[in-house]
Amino acid sequence: MKSLQDAIYNWLTIKIVAEARPDDKAAKETFDLFEDILVNEFRLKDIHIQKDDVMYLVNYTIDGEAKSARFPTELIEVMHNQINQHPEKYQNYE
């Protein structure tokens, strides 16, 4: 993955899904993949998330330098909302 912004977006989006669906093996595996990309490819450490009504704020460090990324809540939660609206399309197969 070439863009750190895209990697954080994908990681956060699937993190929300994986936390809401703890028995969903595919969501967990996808979350683990994106977390590995953030940690090993982009060297992120100390990742913390804050959420308010409008935005998600992801704080992290790279090579000791504090950085952050912001994403609209609606954008991050779209996948989770789709799953909740159409659960028949997102069955958990083991």
Rank of each mutant, 00 (worst) to 15 (best):
Y60G: 04
R21H: 10
E65H: 07
A20H: 06
P72F: 09
L57R: 13
D23G: 00
E41G: 06
V39W: 05
E41P: 04
K51D: 05
L12W: 03
D36L: 06
E35I: 02
N84G: 10
E74D: 14
K67F: 03
I49C: 06
A20G: 03
D32I: 07
D46H: 11
K25C: 00
V54G: 04
I37T: 14
L33W: 03
T30C: 02
N92K: 10
W11S: 03
F31Y: 13
Q50K: 13
K28P: 00
N92T: 15
D32W: 04
D53Q: 13
H48R: 12
A7M: 00
N40A: 04
V58D: 01
P22D: 08
K67R: 15
F71S: 09
A69Y: 09
T73R: 15
P22K: 04
T61W: 01
R21L: 14
K67V: 00
A69R: 10
G64N: 12
P87Q: 02
H86P: 00
D24T: 01
F31H: 13
V17H: 01
L75V: 03
K89F: 08
D6H: 06
Q82F: 04
N84C: 05
K15M: 05
Q5H: 15
A66E: 11
T73G: 06
F42C: 07
K28N: 11
Q82E: 14
N59A: 10
A27G: 07
L44A: 08
K28A: 12
Y90V: 04
D53C: 05
F31L: 14
A7P: 01
D23L: 05
D24W: 11
G64T: 09
K51Y: 04
L33S: 09
K25Q: 12
I47S: 09
G64Y: 06
I62H: 01
Q82V: 07
Q82A: 12
D24S: 09
Y56K: 07
E88T: 07
E77D: 12
Q91Y: 03
